[in-house]
Amino acid sequence: MDNVLVGTTLSAMATGLGALIVLFLQGNITHRWRDMLLAFTAGIMMAASMLSLIPESIAAGGLVPVAVGLLLGVIVLTAMEKMIPHIDLDHGKSNMEIDPKAMLIVAAITLHNIPEGLSVGVSYALGDADTGNLIAFAIGLQNAPEGFLVALFLMNQKMHKFKAFLIATATGAIEIVSGLMGYYLTTYVEFLISYGLAFAAGAMLFIIYKELIPESHGDGHERPSTYSFIIGILFMVILIESF
């Protein structure tokens, strides 16, 4: 219990750590660096999904739960995307006044964090703290640039830096709740562990291919973003082997 609480909290609060940068930001970060950062986190999540979550799911339940869980993760993320507005943080307009629509976008970002929290909680439910720590670390690394981009978006809406930081940090807090839900559900209903791990992988793969990779290629920096993606994979492979 202590491990999942600490892991989900740290991975969620990484959103605030990324948002903290805006308090010291004097100018705008270039699209090139933002794209490379997004691609790097995509590589980390890809390696975590393919080399940790899916193999653990197969070991826990076999191929059928993997297939069902993966597809369910994709279906749930697809439904969520249709129900809430798409968020184009890097390429959206920056001259809009803050209004209820902007707050709706913040709410959408918060909802998008639910599957990430589930990924962490389900990973700890497997009973292997190393796997849980690894996934929590991967999600945390993904959350940091997300928090930065959310805070930057709010600043572009003419919001004060500190208020933008607080709101961006709050968007990640829901991961603590969803992480604990995923942990308790799969802990007390053991056959769900394999499905839960695959669900988490499916959700992460959807986010990678649907959101992170297209965003990282939106400004003509495909080659450095590709290199950054590969470095992210290698970075996570080293972590997995180290654990």
Rank of each mutant, 00 (worst) to 15 (best):
T110E: 06
F148E: 06
A136I: 08
D90F: 09
S52W: 01
I208K: 09
G7H: 02
G92E: 14
V237D: 06
L38M: 14
S11A: 13
L197Q: 01
F153Y: 15
L192S: 04
F40Q: 00
M1F: 13
D2L: 12
I54Q: 01
G73Y: 01
N28I: 11
I44Q: 04
A108G: 15
V120H: 01
H221A: 10
G18W: 05
L63D: 09
A151M: 12
R34T: 05
G147I: 03
M181H: 03
A59Q: 14
L141P: 01
A19S: 13
E211G: 02
G43W: 05
A47R: 06
T9L: 14
N143H: 14
F148W: 07
D128K: 09
G73M: 04
H31Q: 11
N156E: 12
I87D: 05
M46W: 11
M96W: 06
G218F: 06
F235M: 13
A42N: 05
M236W: 09
I167V: 15
H112R: 07
E116P: 05
L166R: 10
H160E: 15
F165G: 06
M236L: 12
G127N: 08
I213A: 03
T15D: 01
I114D: 00
V189L: 09
Y124F: 15
R223V: 14
N3E: 09
G232M: 13
K163F: 10
F24C: 06
Q26A: 06
A144Q: 11
P224W: 09
L239R: 05
N95S: 07
F137Q: 03
V68W: 00
L185H: 00
V177M: 09
E190P: 05
A138D: 10
Q142D: 05
H221E: 13
P85A: 13
W33C: 02
D99F: 07
G232E: 09
A60H: 04
I139P: 00
D128L: 07
A129N: 12
F243L: 15
I29S: 02
T8K: 00
E215K: 15
D219L: 04
G182V: 02
T131N: 04
H160R: 14
V177Q: 03
T41A: 15
G147E: 13
L134R: 10
F199P: 00
H31F: 11
I75P: 01
V22A: 11
L23N: 14
F199K: 00
S194G: 05
S57A: 15
P55S: 12
Y124V: 00
I21F: 10
S194Y: 00
L37A: 13
K158N: 13
L89S: 08
T41F: 08
L149S: 15
N133E: 05
D219H: 15
M236P: 03
G232H: 13
